[in-house]
Each structure stands twice: as C-alpha cells, then as structure tokens.
Nucleic acid binder design. Structure first.
Lengths: 153, 153
DNA sequence: ATGCGTGCAAAGTCTTTGCAGCTTC
DNA sequence: GAAGCTGCAAAGACTTTGCACGCAT
C-alpha cells in the first residue's frame, strides 16, 4: 500500500495474504476491524487492544495480537507509533486527508495530532530518490507543552 | 535548548544541571563527549555506548548510561531515535544545517539520512500554535528499500 | 492433505529501580 | 554537610518463541 491508496477491506487483506501464501483468519479480521472503527486520533498498544477485545468477549491471545500488529505494520496497514511511553502504539494507516502527525510533550506525555500536506510531498520525493516504496511517514515533534513548562523538572 | 541553538559544551551542561540543583559528573562529561565526537550519521544504543566506553577503559555502568541518555534526551541534548529495531538509538541533537531525518527500510533495517529545511519551519509553526517548546523534530519515512522489494516476504 | 496460525507458557530482551557508598556543590 | 549520583544486582515491563493442536486453503 502506498500512502495514497484506500484503507484495507477484509477482502483486500485476504487477497494480499493469499498472494503471499498466508491465510485470512477470524483473529486477523477482528483486529483489522477494530482498528478501522477506532475514532480518529485514537491509537492502541498491544495491551490496550487485548483488553478491548477481552471486554468484547473476543478471546484473542496476546501473542497473536503482537504477531498480527507487527505483520500489519510491515504490510503498511497499520502505523507503528513511538510516542513518549515505553511501548508502541498502533493505528490504521490512512491516506490523505486523514493522514496526520504528532506533537508530543516529553513531560506530560500529551499527544496532539496535526495535518500537513507538504510532508507527503517531501516524503515521496525523498523515497523516490532512493527507490524506496513508502509505507508510512511521520513527523514527530518532541517538545514541552505549556503545562510541562510550568514545572522545573 | 531550541532547535537552532548550538551544541552543548561541558560548561553549558554543567550550568544547566546546576540551575536545576543537579550535578556535573565525570560520567556525564564522558558520555556527552562521546556523542559529540561521533561521526555524523552514527547513532548509538545504550548497549553500543556501553561497549564503546568499555573498550576505551571507561567503566561506566549500564544503569548510568540509561539514566544519562534519557536525561540528555529530556534536556534536548540528545535525540532519541526509534529506528526499526527494538531498542532506541541516540545521537547528538544538532541545529541546522546538521539536523537531519531518516528514511528507514522495514525489511533490511537500512537507514538513510536526509536533510530538509521546510521541516523546521513546519515544526516550529505547529509548536507555536500549541505553545510547545521544541526539543526535537523528526520526519521518519518508513518503507521498503530496493533490495527489500526483491524479496517476497 | 498440507502447512500456516493460534494459544499457552516459558523464555528473552531491554530498561528501570532500591540501596549503600561516593562525589559534587 | 546535604543531597544528588553511581554501581551493583535484582526486578520489572514489554515482546518473542517453541510446540501441539486446529483451521484455512
């Protein structure tokens, strides 16, 4: 998937998995669907997703969750976000105009999303120069929020 | 430190630490100096740094290294990089024109640096809008390199 | 029928923390 | 002198892996 193709349907996922000799499973479909219905701006860690599915009565093991989100990130379906905390977060990888970036406060862990069209252009130009296929592009601005600036430490 | 101030000297580090009631130590000076003399484009994980210091006969414990790089990242002296591997890398946080970004191959873990002046402008505009003080800004383009594209998986 | 995927539990990797003694201010 | 800092070892958090069984193709 390039940055400007539509979000995956279950059928598209199945087709791509099968093309690689892999398989569609109920677990993979549930996980994809969970991310697709997540409100914009929400992102889940593996544990978040596990808890959420448990609440819904879906018993998908934590191993499968880790395996699946990593696979989907490698396919470009999910974005792997490194916010300030010590674990990864995932969210659906949406094309413009939904694609966004993150402004992160190092002190409070606050995360603000923002959009900017120039970044796609810059990213594609750089990727083209080196012959890379783009899966995702993220501008992360790391700083200190107004609240964070009020504390000395 | 904002994105356009000069790189830290030992004296500047000491001054800033003291202002917060903290202290300068030989370990902190050695670690700062190691990053400052690192060739552009090199970045070290905590273990890398530990090994490198061991080779030089500097016995700084791994705990101190973790504590120090995290502290320096929070101060804006080091950039914390999340490449594709499962641990963080650190490098000195340099102002323009040395500031750069990363193009990362998800399959081969290859990392290419690139520079782009627009990104500073964009970042400062976004940060200003929300009243954030900028410590670092990183555009990470995640994709697949030409070599990576040749393998099916 | 084949062999990929899942769940479980165990192991692994990276990172953090409690504490006693040392060092800096 | 007071308080932060280090080193050590132990613990902690997150993630991966081996294996047997089940399920998609």
């Amino acid at each position: 998937m390039t940055a400007s193709e539509p979000v995956y349907s279950p059928e598209a996922l199945k087709a791509e998995l099968n093309a690689k000799g892999w398989r569609m499973t109920p677990q993979r479909e549930i996980i994809l669907s969970t991310f697709k219905t997540l409100p914009e701006g929400q992102h889940l860690s593996a544990e978040d997703l596990y808890g959420r599915l448990q609440e819904q009565g879906e018993n998908i093991s934590i191993s499968t969750i880790y395996r699946t989100v990593k696979m989907m990130a490698r396919m470009g379906i999910l974005r792997e976000l490194e916010l300030t905390e010590d674990h990864k977060h995932y969210e659906i990888n949406q094309p413009r105009p939904h694609h966004h970036h993150h402004l992160i406060c190092m002190k409070t862990n606050q995360v603000i999303e923002f959009k900017n069209d120039q970044i796609l252009t810059i990213s594609q130009k750089v990727a083209d120069k080196y012959g890379f296929k783009v899966l995702d592009y993220q501008l992360s601005i790391i700083g200190v929020s107004p609240e964070g600036q009020r504390s000395i430490f």
